[in-house]
Structures are given as C-alpha cells and as structure tokens.
Amino acid sequence: MTEASSNIGYAPELDETPPQPWAFWRTDTFQRLIRHRAFMVGAVLFAIVALVGALAPLITSVDPNALSIRNKFKPPSWEYPFGTDNFGRSQLSRVVYGARLSLGIGLGVLVLNAVFGVLLGAAAGYVRKLDGPLMRVADAFMAFPAILLAIGIAAALGPSSMTAVIAISVVYIPRTARIVRASVLVVREMEFVQAALASGATHYRIVRKHVLPNCMAPLIVQLSFIFAYAVLTEAVLSFLGLGAAPPAPTWGNIIAEGRTYMREAEWITLIPGIVLAVTVLSLNLLGDGLRDVLDPRLKVQQG
C-alpha cells in the first residue's frame, strides 16, 4: 500500500456500483419535467410550431409571396387549407413561413438576452462598484412600459426585422440582468466561493466556474418567458409597421394586412392570431414547468 492510499480510519459503505455516466435523461430534473403535465403540453405544442417553422419549405411548396389575384379571398378549402388573402397569397404558406420569421426573431432576442443579461448581471452582482450604476440604468429602462419602449427604439432605428430584435432585446435585457444579479448576489456569499478564493482561484475563474453555473435555473426560466414576450412584441411591432417590411410574412404583418377585411374574410386575421396565441401559451406553459422544476423556492407539490 502506498503512503497516499493508507486508508485512515474509515470504511465507506461499499456500494461499488459504478456510477453511470451522466446523461440528461437520467437526471432527476428531467424525470420531474416529463411528469409535469403543463410542461409537456407546452413543450409538445412549441416543438410542433418550431418544427413547422424549421421545415417550412417541406410543408408547403407555395411561395408565401406568390400573388394570384384570381384566387383572392378564398375561404379555407382543400386547395388552400388556411384560405387566401386580398392578393390571393396562400395563407398556409404565409403562416408557416411566419413561424420561421417570428421564432427566428424570438431566438435572436433570447440569445442577445442570454449573453448581455449574463454579462451585465454578473458584473453588477459580483463587482460591488458597478452594482449601483448598472442597476440605476436598468431602473431607467424598466420605468418605461415594455411595448412603448420597444416601439420607440424600433421607430428610431427604422423598421426591419433586425431592428425588432434589437428593440425587443433592449427592453428585456435589464430584466434578465436583474435576475442574474439577484442570483449572483446569493451565490457569491456561499462557502464554496470562499473555498475557491482560498485555493487561489482568480475572480474570472470564480465567476465562470462557481457563480454562474449555480445561477442558471432562474435564468433559464426567465429566458423561456422572454421568448414568449419577444414573439408577442414582435407581432405588435410588425402590426404597427415597425417590424419586418410588409411583404415579409410575419404574423404581425399578416394580421395587420388582414384587419381591413375582418368582416368579409375573418380567416386572414383569425388563423395567424390563433397560431400566435398558441405559441405564446405553449412557451408560458413551458416556462411555468421549468420554474416548478428548476426553482426550488417556488416548488409546488404534485399529486
């Protein structure tokens, strides 16, 4: 027996079962998620919308911008499952490609929020001197109603889908940063952070290895809600003509164009409206489920 392996004093209970390699589907978190009914409903609905958006060219071969004046205002039928609009464009194609645009914008907002929210939140929470200034700026942004601020920024930058992403991100980044900051403030005081400091870890290493990984749960929950708000806000912006320019088939654009003919051809506004509502609902259900499972402070008993 070597010196280092001289087993001092203590026999651990000998369950020699080799630990199985870590896999997400084997974790307790995942098991709880799949048993969470609301989460599964949300996840399945959202997966359908996302798949439809991703596979848009496979689902419909009709160009969403192809005009066919002869076929205008066709109600839903076998040929046009979602009907046609005032230019005879296939509503199915437009809604399907709209999923691609809307979710793409939502994803862009999500990524920007994750990156800047984490950076700013970690800076504010970990560096005491930055906390005051950063949070006062965040307060200033959050003092505006979300929609109003997004409209203002989008109007100032000029309408395009890129502006929509930036405008919506600017609205929600302070909120994300706040949530990250709150978690960082809690985690930085934990003893394992002190232990890392005592072991000679640099601050960069402490934040990256010890603080941030333990702040992920509330962030993931927040991001799922931000995705929902982003999709909704994007629809509002393009409805008001501040999102992607009109021929582009975003859900907001389709609803905006159809609203003039609401009495005669209600399907033009109704169907994208329902799809939008279902998408936002699915993300909210998903977020609720994630919060129940990941955020133990809000844990509710499941029967």
Binding site: T2, A4, S5, S6, N7, I8, G9, Y10, A11, P12, L14
Partner: peptide, 9 residues
C-alpha cells in the same frame, strides 16, 4: 489518492 487518504473510496 486524496479520496483514499481521507477515508473515501
């Protein structure tokens, strides 16, 4: 080795 030193496996 460290784990064995402190009496774990």
């Amino acid at each position: 080795d460290l784990l064995e030193t402190v009496g774990l496996a």
